[in-house]
Design a protein around this nucleic acid. Structure first.
Lengths: 232, 232
DNA sequence: TCTCCGTCAAGAGCACCGCTCTCTAATCGC
DNA sequence: GCGATTAGAGAGCGGTGCTCTTGACGGAGA
């Protein structure tokens, strides 16, 4: 009874996994707009309508891929951070930057799904929120650790943030406990700077202009790290 | 003969303009993937195949919208810069930042078309390159002007860029003449930081997190300006 | 053991899409 | 005015997401 029910559920789970695997492969080669339920069904030897037993709509399949993508990126970032000495805060920051960039270069279409133009008519459901901040959580820990260790020296070039930003800082602080407001705002600046750089590279804004992208990235992330207040 | 030929050409140009106008309206409401030649034709009271007399493919229509978008953004940036005192370099930088953000907020789908995920299978033709750097050209002039005026003081937090980046700096320097390599790389960092911030806001990464977006933007752009070396 | 009910694949079908082709009508250049 | 060019209409092809119905299968309870 239990065994049989789980047998049924198991084949169902297996099929769902197979569908997402094929879909992810299609996503990687054709991009999000080229992802078609019918093509996935065709490759599985199924009729297209059968897919709807497992994913009620194309958007639901896309949601599954988005969650997978956030988790894959988050895991890559976690691994990169874990490989560093805990008190090498600059090294951890740079490792996270490189992990984001390398994952994006290896999975450009998935990166586009996560950080590019949102799919129109598509509203990310609640399930995506937790995986979406997995990478940010790692970053938050680095900032918090560095601050707690007293290794975050505010650069002389930033004015103090306006008082009204304290409200937002309160929310962000859940990812980087005990960090003062000015550090929070600089942390946001560095984080958006990282993704701005990666997006420019992935989305083609550097075409015909920048050729030594790894070196430029490395250098600019170093600058951003110093903007954040990280040591040499 | 001339008058009659231009009469035909004039109605043709008029129709092309009408098509792009309707298409831009559809783009603004439905987004790029929701833009359909058939819907545009329907709204014009045309049969769908007739559109192909004017745009050989959907991608060509999209190209026209992209060029228009770059020009609209470029013009907004030019106007913002022109409204500032020539020697108020920090003011010009912030004006450009605000112009980019406000244009993006007013035209999110067009912004996504320009700076979001590239449309798969779509390669931007040569015609898009010149309009694409219209905003960047304004920025380059600000940096070059500030440097020429001796108002660009390198912040103490950036190491010198590696020598190999000199090659890329040579190309970027066409937009900001006579600017040394380290300023070029910091200029790129500030520019990508601006678009990273705007993209995060437009693409929804600030949802459920940042509410005082204008204030955060203002503050972070100020920081980036100082990273670039702009005065108080 | 038999029956019943839930699950599933399959197929037909709807409305839409980009795009091509042919045919006819209007228009322009000479 | 006549031949050449251009524009629009319509049918049609293969594709899409999605819905609905039908019939087969298999596990659960009488």
């Amino acid at each position: 009874m239990n065994a049989s029910r789980t047998a049924r559920e198991r084949v169902r789970a297996e099929l769902i996994r197979e569908i997402t695997d094929i879909a992810r492969r299609h996503l990687a080669t054709e991009g999000a707009t080229g992802l078609s339920l019918r093509a996935v069904a065709r490759e599985m030897g199924m009729v297209s309508s059968a897919i709807y037993r497992y994913f009620p709509s194309r958007d639901d399949l896309l949601t599954a891929l988005i969650i997978d993508g956030y988790n894959a990126l988050g895991e890559a970032v976690e691994r990169a951070d874990a490989a560093c000495a805990r008190d090498d805060f600059t090294g951890r920051w740079l490792a996270v930057c490189r992990a984001v960039r390398e994952w994006a270069l290896a999975h450009p279409h998935e990166y586009a799904l996560l950080y590019g133009s949102p799919v129109p008519g598509y509203a990310a459901p609640q399930d995506t929120i937790a995986p979406a901040v997995r990478d940010t959580a790692v970053y938050g820990r680095i900032v918090a650790d560095a601050h707690r260790a007293g290794r975050l020296t505010p650069p002389p070039i930033c004015p103090p943030p306006p008082a009204i930003l304290a409200e937002d800082a309160k929310i962000v602080r859940s990812l980087m406990p005990d960090v003062p407001d000015d550090v929070v705002t600089r942390a946001i600046a560095a984080w958006t700077g990282l993704f701005g750089m990666v997006s420019f590279e992935i989305f083609g804004q550097f075409n015909n202009t920048i050729t030594h992208r790894a070196e430029l990235f490395e250098h600019n992330m170093t600058c951003l790290g110093h903007l954040l207040g990280l040591p040499e």
